[in-house]
Design a protein around this nucleic acid. Structure first.
Lengths: 232, 232
DNA sequence: ATCGCGCGTTAAAAAATGTTAAAGCTGCTA
DNA sequence: TAGCAGCTTTAACATTTTTTAACGCGCGAT
């Protein structure tokens, strides 16, 4: 399967540097479009989406900060990397609060630029996978495993780590039996007598938290484990 | 493919300590050669290249500073770590500007020595191939690891080194659990009780800095570590 | 039915963490 | 070199989380 090329928007007013960069990035497998000021770049951006933006801060007509702000207003996920002059004062970078992912100071090594791009893209990708389905609906409850939060009618119950991990396993096995030993090995790394009793204590706690919705039940399967029955 | 072992040059005149160190490092997978003075060490160095140098400063015939200088003159990249006596004044080391990567004071813990070696080697490696991302977006905050700055609504909070390093590790593991011990070994080189408590103090500080955005949370995972949960 | 074992539940004990402040260090400056 | 300022560690105490203990009940096999 032919992999989709990453489209790079490059906004750089120095034609010399810009051309070199574009050539370099194209050689590295990126589909790079060069624009010599923020205005042109934004016009192009509106016509077609890009996967990555490299923006020089100091440009005529429309500077890099403004351009980045406009792009961010439209899309808060697309990675943005700034090119800054070495002379730029720290306080100027202060305004650099609009969700740029990184910056690099001129003059820079093109390999380093590439390395940073890759790091950002890798991270963005990982971020998407991470934030997958960690949120479950349990009857009228909502459980956010990542935040360790159990929400019911706009009131939030913070869960402890153990509570959250146990509820997470139960949710993954909703309406199925969660085996005691499995859970113990997963959370306590060892199914000893005391850990088993500890788990029972947590089951009791979860029942308390979940008692507001009678259609949700946490029932025991004698000698086997527990089952989270969600009402619907 | 068999991985190439890291070759370590160890210059230490105390034969007792030197032998123990060599044995320890060899057990940890480093190919270690021991020399009892700077002269012998440099002769060996000219014959074959090393990947890492551990040099005692006070040695007969040719002292550690001289040896390090000679090695640096030949190769400005090879990592050098000094062993110093406790009595040695800080300012003597400071004046020595021959590109040592670190030093450790006798008597030292061998695990700590190893941890520092690993840190230095990791940095050297990272610098070459994959310079890491250093600007992170944490909810409505922007964290610049390089400048040790935490920016929110165009107001800057300067961070101390420890704060910045810890936040950096947390960001690299955003929405994942950062293991306590990992962080301690990375930043404090040693996970002792007091270092762990120190880390807790820094966690509290970071929480204060980050409290302006309620969608950002720094939650504890009991007995394991911490997790930086970013809004979005 | 009844006996043993697994489970429900609550509370106390133990361990880990939260938080604040003071003590220790280091580098800088007058 | 004394003193100050910033940073880190240590100390002390508060709070939270987890584990252990204790007691009682009910399921299920005999």
């Amino acid at each position: 399967m032919p992999e989709e090329k990453t489209k790079v928007l490059l906004a750089e007013d120095d034609k010399n540097l810009g051309t070199i960069l574009r050539t370099y990035l194209n050689a590295k497998g990126y589909e790079t479009s060069l624009y010599v000021n923020g205005d042109e770049a934004f016009k192009a951006y509106r016509k077609e989406p890009f996967d990555f933006c490299i923006i020089d801060i100091m440009m005529p007509v429309k500077d890099g900060f403004t351009l980045a702000g406009e792009i961010r207003a439209d899309n808060e996920d697309v990675p943005i990397l700034f090119l800054t002059a070495k002379s730029m004062q720290e306080d100027k970078l202060k305004g650099f609060d609009l969700g740029a992912d990184d910056y690099i100071t001129k003059p820079f090594n093109m390999d380093e630029l590439l390395a940073r791009m890759k790091a950002i893209l890798r991270r963005a990708k990982a971020g998407k996978e991470d934030s997958e389905k960690q949120v479950f609906n349990i009857g009228s409850y909502t459980f956010d495993h990542n935040r360790q939060l159990l929400i019911h009618n706009s009131n939030e119950q913070k869960l402890t780590s153990r509570e959250s991990e146990l509820l997470y396993l139960l949710c993954k096995n909703a309406n199925q039996v969660l085996d005691r030993r499995e859970a113990l090995k997963e959370i306590w790394y060892d199914d000893s007598y005391f850990n088993a009793r500890s788990m029972d204590v947590y089951i009791a706690k979860l029942r308390k938290y979940l008692k507001s919705d009678p259609s949700v039940e946490l029932i025991n399967v004698h000698g086997i484990g527990f089952k989270l029955v969600t009402g619907k």
